[in-house]
Simulated assay, not measured.
Amino acid sequence: MHLPPLPTIREIIRIYKLGSIKRLSQNFLLDTNITHKLVRSMGRNLTGAHVCEVGPGPGSITRPLLEAGVEHLSVIELDKRFIPSLQLLSKASGSRMSIYHGDVLRFNFDQIFPDTLSRPWEEHPPKIHIVGNLPFGVSTPLIIRWMNAIADRNQAWRYGRTRLTLTFQKEVAERMIAQPEDEQRSRLSIMTQYLCDVNLKFVINGRSFVPPPEVDAAVVHFTPRVEPLIPYPFKVVEKVVRHVFQFRQKMCKRGIQTLFPPEQVSMPKEMIALAEIDPETRSFQLTIDEFSRLCGAYMEICRKNPGIIDYYFRDEENAPSWKYQRPSSI
């Protein structure tokens, strides 16, 4: 679906004087071969799909999305300097594009997709996609926030198993797909893989961006799983995984100990025993199944010991009100 003749993205940047802002981690992707490849990596057929692009900037990915035949494209842009160039694209698209000026970290996706697209979670994903060339500075907190929404099935995931196709710093992308024993395995590996099927589609050389960052980037595709691999609340999983990876090169028992007050020396041992984990295993060697057992064991201990769930070892003064209660006699 071709757009009418328009200035090139390079010309748009020159006409509107859209220099990148370093503090916003802005790096423009101007190679049309790569932007079209990124759009193709979203799936074979986008005709009739509703897509949300985060951080469109001057519109280098926006154009191939519109040309792919999407039914409607919503874009979320924080930098108001880009709004006029995006309005130019919106007009050229024949009203198939909506522009939202705001911070994607605070954006609510509840109302931008029609309810008619909703599908039961167990069925095939809806014709809804989220795509974006993310600023490296916000990519990690944003993907954790979206994993939380996937776990709770709200925002863009109240419509079903909405897919994502996003760019990350190559090292971050490699962490997301890292398997046990891989030195890259981290908290991100567990938090993304337990909720989604995660695939690294291709690597983008840093020289393809303007200005070129010091690192390469990679495109990652996420499809939410019908059933999460860890069947416990997101906040519990995130807390256990974060603590276990506090000391990723040390034995996992060291991170487990930080989940409990120092005086409760028996609780870490109880958690390890309940989970049937080798306490000398390093965090990056643990499988998702082992993390699942650790989460279940932690929840069991918290159930028997009210108040433990609110303990934060790094910030006891400012953490939520915590008061340890002795176990009941049950």
Rank of each mutant, 00 (worst) to 15 (best):
Q193F: 08
Q87W: 10
P120F: 05
F109T: 04
E276A: 14
P125H: 09
F202C: 05
L24I: 03
F109K: 01
K22D: 02
W121Q: 04
I13D: 01
L274G: 00
L46P: 07
Q249V: 13
F247K: 13
F168H: 07
V226H: 12
I143P: 04
N33H: 12
S25G: 15
K323E: 14
P7E: 09
E214K: 15
R44M: 10
R242P: 01
N199V: 15
F113V: 07
A49V: 12
V219A: 08
I143L: 11
Y16E: 08
L105C: 09
P114V: 03
R326T: 11
T162Y: 06
F109W: 04
P58G: 02
M97L: 14
I301W: 13
L18W: 04
N27M: 08
R44P: 04
E317Q: 14
L18T: 03
V54M: 13
P327F: 02
E181C: 08
N133C: 08
I34M: 02
M97R: 04
P114M: 09
P125V: 10
V244H: 02
F107T: 04
R303A: 14
F107E: 06
P320G: 06
S328C: 10
R153G: 08
L29V: 10
I230P: 04
M191N: 06
I309Q: 14
F284T: 01
R326I: 11
P7L: 09
I112T: 04
F136H: 05
L46N: 13
V226G: 00
C196K: 09
E53F: 12
L65W: 06
I61T: 09
L142D: 07
V172G: 08
V138C: 01
Y100V: 13
T47Q: 13
V210T: 14
A178W: 01
E280P: 00
I15G: 00
Q179D: 01
W121I: 11
I130G: 00
H221V: 04
L6P: 06
M42R: 03
R293W: 06
R175P: 06
T167D: 03
R282V: 07
I112P: 07
Q184W: 11
M1F: 12
F82Q: 02
R248L: 11
K37H: 08
I256G: 06
M299V: 10
S292F: 05
I288L: 09
D315Q: 15
R185C: 03
R225C: 11
L200S: 15
P141G: 01
W157R: 09
M191K: 02
V265Y: 08
W146F: 12
E270D: 13
